[in-house]
């Protein structure tokens, strides 16, 4: 049997763009579910700091991320040098979907990868280690 997907929840703590009732309801359902999960206060803030924890969170195996738009999540991780594997990542958008839908997807045990496919690979994104000094 395949290992269940890891769950990562983003609280988007530093902005009001994710409806408060949605993120609280999703967190409440996760909290009550009895399953292990990861929660980030704000993925944007972690990406801005190039937080090495993003590499851990992108990690190996499948991951379901309750956050915002898949395109934004994909490139936030890539910008921090922690590209997500498109075949093993499902992003659930708390800005647009109701809490019930998100919670049901997290609890269902089914996994539907949905990162937008693109021309280059995430590894093609420039990383801090490759940065040239600003002129």
């Amino acid at each position: 049997m395949a290992e269940p997907a890891r769950i990562l929840y983003c609280h988007c703590a530093h902005a009001q763009v994710v409806p408060r009732d949605v993120k609280e309801a999703v967190l409440r359902r996760l909290s009550d579910s009895g399953v292990s999960f990861e929660a980030a206060a704000d993925l944007c803030e972690m990406a801005a700091r190039n937080d090495p924890a993003l590499v851990r969170l992108a990690g190996e195996g499948c991951v379901q991320i309750a956050a915002c738009y898949p395109r934004a999540v994909k490139w936030l991780f890539a910008a921090a040098g922690a590209p997500l594997d498109p075949a093993r990542t499902q992003v659930l958008n708390m800005r647009t979907a109701p809490a019930e839908e998100i919670a049901a997807a997290l609890a269902s045990g089914t996994f539907t990868p949905n990162l937008p496919a693109g021309k280059p690979l995430p590894e093609d994104a420039p990383s801090p280690s490759k940065a040239a000094p600003a002129s």
């Binding site: 703590a13 399953v35 292990s36 999960f37 929660a39 195996g61």
Partner: peptide
Amino acid sequence: LERGFSVTRATGRGSV
């Protein structure tokens, strides 16, 4: 989370 921390909830079910 409101204080800006990353949190892991570890139980016997699921993986982190």
